[in-house]
Structures are given as C-alpha cells and as structure tokens.
C-alpha cells in the first residue's frame, strides 16, 4: 500500500482505515496487526500535527506499508523545517542506542511526569514507536534547501 500527497487530519483518518482493512484482508496475527496500527497512528499524527510550510517547495508526504507473514515494513516521509529536523534528530538519537527496557523506563517516567501539551505533544510518541518496534527504526534527513529537509522514517514490526 502506498500513499503520496498531503497528510492532514482527514487524510490521516482515511489512511488508518485503509491500513486496518489491509491487515484484515491479510489475516495477520492480532498482536502484530495491533502493534503496527499503533505505530501508524503515532507516525501519521506526527506528520500532520507537525507539518510545516516549506518555503517555495511542493513536496508530497508519503507513506507505505509492505507485508511479510510475520513482519510489517512501514515507511513515512515528509518535508520538515531545519528546526523540526533538529528536534526529531535529538529525539531519535536519544533512543537509538537504548535497549527496549531502557526505552520503557523513559516512557514510564514521561507518563508519570506533568506534561505541558504544547505543539510538540506529550513527548511520548517517539518512545512508544521505539517500544512497539523493538527499536527497529531507521531514519535519515535529506537536505532540500538551507532550511528544509526531507525526513524519511523506516520501521520494522515483527510478530515477536
């Protein structure tokens, strides 16, 4: 399944429905399906909640899902400003060398804390993606211009 275009709230809703239908059709194991849908929700929300106007650039967001019997591959791409790139880079770097129990400890710590629901949300999303994917996350930022980048995120979800 592939999508190219602008991801906003209503597109996000349609895509979540399409992913649910896709998984239903392929009779995937429920735990695998549930994990992947949670990751899709989290990532698509990040895309539409943090979409920024990139000056003079018409570049689509994109999202794809591919399946093997016990594995789901997800990819998400969207243009981001330099400020957002630095924010995301820091968040992903913070978890990339952590084990799943260490990510879980950080997630739980964040749940316990007082959260200011600013534009950046509860700060739980990337930790949760790391947990659900057993931290099988790859990402890169390709420069578009001096102040904008194309962000690509690849996540593998296993049945185990």
């Amino acid at each position: 399944m592939e999508f190219n275009g602008q991801i906003d709230y209503s597109t996000h809703e349609r895509l979540v429905d399409s992913v649910k239908d896709l998984f239903q059709t392929h009779l995937l194991p429920i735990p695998l399906k549930n994990k992947a849908i949670h990751v899709v929700i989290e990532c698509l929300e990040n895309m539409y909640k943090h979409s920024e106007n990139i000056e003079n650039q018409i570049i689509n967001d994109s999202f794809s899902v591919s399946l093997k019997p016990d594995t789901i591959f997800l990819s998400f791409s969207n243009p981001v400003t330099k400020k957002r790139m630095l924010f995301l880079k820091e968040k992903f770097e913070n978890i990339e060398n952590l084990s799943v129990p260490e990510i879980k400890a950080k997630y739980n710590e964040q749940l316990r804390s007082q959260i200011n629901f600013s534009k950046n949300g509860a700060g739980l999303g990337i930790l949760r993606i790391g947990l659900l994917s057993n931290n099988k996350i790859k990402y890169n930022f390709e420069p578009i211009s001096e102040n904008s980048y194309y962000f690509r995120l690849f996540i593998t979800i296993d049945a185990v």
């Binding site: 849908i37 749940l111 316990r112 949300g121």
Partner: peptide, 12 residues
C-alpha cells in the same frame, strides 16, 4: 482499541 500516546498520558 487503538490509542495515541497522548491518550495514554490521560488514562494514566
């Protein structure tokens, strides 16, 4: 069913 991480904070 499916929930986002911000909802998880409120459920907590």
């Amino acid at each position: 069913g499916y929930f986002n991480s911000s909802s998880a904070k409120f459920i907590f």
